[in-house]
Amino acid sequence: MSPPKALAHPPLLSTSLQGFLVAFERHDWPSAFVCLLPVALIFGLFNIYPALYSVFLSFFRWDGFNLQREFVGLDNYRTLVHSGAFWHSVLVTFYYASGATLLSLVLGLALATALNSNLAGRTIYRTLYFLPVVTPMVAAGVVWQRLFDPTHGVINGALSWLGVTGPNWLSDPAWAMPALILVGTWRRAGFNLVVYLAALQAVPRIYYEAARLDGASAWALFRFITVPLVAPASLFLAITSLIDGFQMLDLVFVMTNGGPLDATNVLGFYLYQNAFRFFKLGYASAVAYAIFALIFLVTLVQWRLVGRRAEVAYQEAA
């Protein structure tokens, strides 16, 4: 508008630029801003916005097709809270996620410890144990179904050799979930192996050598050096496997179809069915945010309890 104001601008700009550069050197936040900008843009557009949009959808009754949606307020959430099927799914999902996470973490670390050595053939082992991660689920589903077959399957064959009568795994409501947990562990262990192998690279060998000179046993080395030093990786794996476990869907698709008697009707499958088989996209969105809230809560607990302890343990060991 008026000339003086226009003239006032350049110096202001330059001071702010100077100030910015000074701030850039003095504080962390300007660098953090630069580091986080690309991530913020992409997450904002392709994660946060669609997520908020589907929160909005959770207040509607919508079949996913119809151009008309009916606003129902909190009805979908009310239905969900009163749905026995939903809470059953929550329990079943906890069962799967905690079982598969725990077993695959232990197995992954054990394998990584064994294979992070000069053991002969370690490259071949590393590749073979990684195969489940790249094996397509359809192939895995077929093979595991056969392995679990109560009459011809290898698993019950081995059990009967030990004098135990094996269950009708995938068709028995009590055993279908343990079977899925085993398959989930089978697949996840190779994945965890990779992360633990990477983590073990950061553990200085000199620690082990010093401890060995002090006469520590192999178990002591593992317990007092390896476990605490890979704690940040363990926290990462515990959180991500739980998140994956909570959303697991493909194993159910290829092996059990949610049965028998909903014994494997996990939340991922419950949500998929409601969204794409029952045409209840509004309700499915509400389910999604219930899942989100549950995972968030569990993660927060892990973060606060395990995370803090893990970082303390790491610092003490290091």
Binding site: F46, N47, Y49, S54, G64, I243, L271, A275, F296
Partner: peptide, 22 residues
């Protein structure tokens, strides 16, 4: 950071249609 972790926790299937619209 929690918000970043949160992006992993939203089931992909329900954001499919809004994501396509973007």
């Amino acid at each position: 950071f929690l918000a970043v972790l949160g992006t992993m926790m939203v089931p992909f299937h329900v954001t499919l249609i809004p994501n396509y619209l973007v």
